[in-house]
Structures are given as C-alpha cells and as structure tokens.
C-alpha cells in the first residue's frame, strides 16, 4: 500500500453562515511556530467587508427579535461547541507561539467568557432599562435596543480570547458583528468560524474576516452601515477610525494596542461591555390622573 497523501485544509472565512474565500482571490501565507509554511489564509478586501455587512444586515432583525432566553441558550451552545474541541483550538493558538499551557488556558478562558455572556442575555435589560420619574401624567420608561451591525477589530495579543471578548457583549443584546481577526495570528478565528457554524448561532450574526488591518481600517471607519467600532488598534488607526466615525456618525470604543491588556481579568467582561453597544429608547406613555 502506498503512503497516504497529506490532506491539507484550505482555511476559509465564516461569513453569512458560509465559508468563503476572498472575492479578490487573494491569500496571505501563514507560518507555524517553526517558521514553516502552514496555510494560505484569505486576504479579505473592502468588498468582502461590504458583503459581510450585507450578510449581517440580513441576519440582524431575526437575531434581535429572538427572545433573550433563546439568545442565551444559543450562546451557551457556542461555548459547548468550543469546549469539546479545546485541544484543537489550543493547537491553533500554539501556531502563534503560545505554549501548550498558555494556549489551553486561553481557550478555557474564552469558553468561560461565552458562558458568562450567555447568562447575561436575559438579565442586562433589567439592569439597564428603567422607569423614570417625570413631573407630568406620563408613565416614562427606558428600554435598550441593539445598535445594529458592530465592527470588531481584534488585537494580535490573545487572538482568541480578545476576539471573543469583543464579539460576545455585542451579540448578547442582539447586535450582529463583522470582525477582523488578528493579522499576525488569524488561524484561531478561522477555527472559531468552524465551531460557530455547528452551534445554533444563525448565519450572519457573527462574520469573521482575515486580512491586512491597514487595508480594511479605512472601510471600517467610513462604512455607514456599521453603527459602532469596538476594537484594539494602534494610534494611527484610532485616528483614522475616529475621523471616519465622525463622518458616518458611529460610536467608537477603542483600546490601545500599545498597552498590555489582561484579557482574563474579571473587569474585561460584564454589564458595562454590553451597555457600550446598545441604544436607549425612552417612551412617554400618557396615563390618567
């Protein structure tokens, strides 16, 4: 019997519930920890970003209309899907130079983070909404609504945990996400897409692109359909994003790539992260007497 040929995988991006190559046909080379060729990863273009936004827009209304309880169940299912493949995901992180212990720790932290937000879906509204005292015959109350489509820019440090920590608070409240994975370590995001695809998360709620940050940041900044940008970027990109966001009236929530972040910290998760990506709607309802 002849030696079996190696079956190599073509990494693809998870967009609109499908696995796509870049419409441009471009790829960039990914090397493993020894500096040897590992795979060609899609080099996504502005048009891929636009297509991902269209996919998110299609999925958005349905995702936002699901009950909070159901969104929680689905997010928990996402955690289950990663939990059963911790080792595989850890190996993806080790490509980027992490040791086995570090990598495993990061994956477990990412799973825990997802479970954390799965618990929040039917609770944040009670914390963020309010009944407001007003000096007239009105019942005045405030409820939150998801903003819409959120652009996420993940840092190179902690390519899985940081990505998950940026995506989850957005989708918890019914937003959809178009995320650009770490440029230097994109493979965990590819694998995350494969895990999301087998969870119950509807296609298009989370869209994961890989590619060059410098190429895509201007489009993230100016695309009017993106309602907010949440990410960790360098000084130059922060400026570009803020200028573009001012033009297209979107919210920005930017961490500094220059500073070390402890992504595992308790303070990196919770209600404030969810609050940052919702809109508040206040209703004045006339009442008698």
């Amino acid at each position: 019997m002849s030696a079996r040929l190696t079956i190599t995988k073509t990494p693809k991006c998870y967009v609109g519930g499908a696995f796509i190559r870049s419409e441009s046909g471009r790829v960039f080379e990914l090397k493993d920890q020894k500096g040897e060729f590992f795979a060609n990863v899609p080099l996504c273009s502005r048009k891929d970003l636009r297509n991902a936004v269209e996919a998110a827009a299609k999925a958005g209304p349905g995702w936002a209309k699901r009950t909070a309880f159901n969104r929680g169940q689905i997010l928990y299912r996402v955690a289950e899907m990663i939990e059963s493949r911790v080792e595989e995901m850890a190996e993806a992180l080790m490509l980027g130079g992490a040791t086995k212990v570090e990598a495993t720790k990061e994956v477990v932290a990412a799973v825990d983070r997802i479970v954390h937000y799965a618990g929040w879906t039917d609770k944040y509204e009670a914390m963020l909404g309010s009944v407001n005292p007003v000096a007239s015959a009105h019942f005045n109350f405030t409820v939150t609504e998801p903003m819409g489509i959120i652009g996420v820019l993940a840092p190179d440090e902690r390519p899985l945990l940081a990505l998950v920590s940026l995506i989850l608070p957005a989708i918890t409240s019914g937003n959809c996400v178009v995320a650009l994975a770490s440029e230097a370590r994109p493979y965990p995001a590819i694998l995350l897409g494969e895990m999301l695809a087998v969870s119950d998360l509807p296609g298009g709620v989370v869209n994961l692109l890989t590619g060059k940050r410098a190429e895509l940041v201007p489009t993230f900044a100016t695309h009017e359909h993106l309602r907010a940008i949440s990410g960790v970027v360098n000084a130059e990109q922060r400026k570009a994003l803020r200028l573009g966001a001012a033009e297209s009236v979107k919210r920005v929530r930017l961490g500094k790539a220059e500073e070390a972040v402890d992504w595992e910290a308790e303070t990196m998760q919770g209600l404030e992260e969810i609050r940052a990506l919702v809109e508040c709607k206040t209703t004045w309802h006339p009442v008698g007497g």
Binding site: G60, P61, A64, T219, E224, H225
Partner: peptide
C-alpha cells in the same frame, strides 16, 4: 463610503 440602506427610503428594521 459604503452607504446604509436607511438613507434610501428602504425598510431595514433598524
């Protein structure tokens, strides 16, 4: 800049 649908009298449910 890529445009949002709500600028063009299109129903987009937010």
């Amino acid at each position: 800049a890529y445009q949002a649908p709500w600028n063009f009298s299109e129903a987009s449910e937010g």
